[in-house]
Computed example of a mutant assay.
Amino acid sequence: MSIKKKLGMGMATAALGLSLIGGGTYAYFSDTAEATGSFTNGTLDLGINKTTIVDISNLKPGDYMFRDFQLSNDGSLDMKQVLLNSSYEVIDANKDNGTEDFGDHIMVEYLYKVEGKENVVFRKTLSELKNNPIEVLKNVPAGKKQIKFTVQFKFLDNGEDQNKFQGDSLKLKWNFEAKQKDGEAR
Rank of each mutant, 00 (worst) to 15 (best):
T99K: 13
P61E: 05
F155G: 02
G159N: 05
G22Q: 08
K173Y: 00
N119S: 10
K145Y: 00
R67D: 14
G24W: 13
R123G: 00
K5I: 10
D55Y: 08
I3H: 04
F39Q: 12
T13C: 13
V114A: 12
T43N: 13
N175F: 01
K60A: 14
L20I: 13
F153S: 06
D101Q: 08
I53M: 13
K124I: 01
R67M: 11
T51Y: 07
N41Y: 12
R186S: 15
T36W: 03
E135C: 06
N139A: 05
N58E: 10
G167M: 06
L18T: 14
K4W: 03
S169H: 05
S127N: 15
L137N: 12
A12W: 01
I147D: 07
V114E: 14
G159T: 04
T52R: 10
N49H: 00
L170E: 09
N132F: 03
R67A: 15
A12I: 13
L156T: 10
Q70H: 02
A12L: 15
G23D: 04
G42T: 03
T51N: 14
P61S: 08
G103D: 02
I134C: 09
D157Y: 01
G75K: 02
L20C: 12
F29W: 08
F39I: 15
K130Y: 04
D101I: 06
E135S: 11
G183V: 09
L83S: 13
Y28C: 11
G167W: 07
K130I: 04
K113Q: 12
G62P: 05
N85P: 03
S76I: 01
V120G: 09
G10W: 10
I53Q: 09
G8S: 13
Y112R: 15
Q81V: 03
L16T: 10
L83R: 11
G17Y: 03
D92Q: 08
K4I: 07
V90Q: 15
S169A: 14
F165C: 13
A33V: 14
V54F: 09
G116H: 09
A142W: 00
S72Y: 00
G47K: 04
A15V: 12
A15H: 03
E34N: 12
G103Q: 02
P133N: 04
M107D: 10
I91V: 13
G22M: 11
L84G: 06
K148R: 11
A93F: 10
T25R: 08
S38K: 06
G47V: 01
E109F: 03
S2I: 00
K60V: 14
K179I: 08
Q152L: 10
E34Q: 10
D31S: 15
I48A: 06
L59H: 04
S127Y: 06
D161C: 09
M1Q: 11
K148H: 12
K164E: 14
I48H: 00
G42I: 01
Y64R: 13
L18M: 15
M1V: 14
L129N: 05
N58A: 12
Y110V: 06
F153K: 07
G75N: 03
D157M: 05
E184S: 12
T40W: 04
A185W: 07
V54Q: 11
Y88A: 11
E100I: 10
N139P: 02
D55G: 14
L59N: 08
L46H: 02
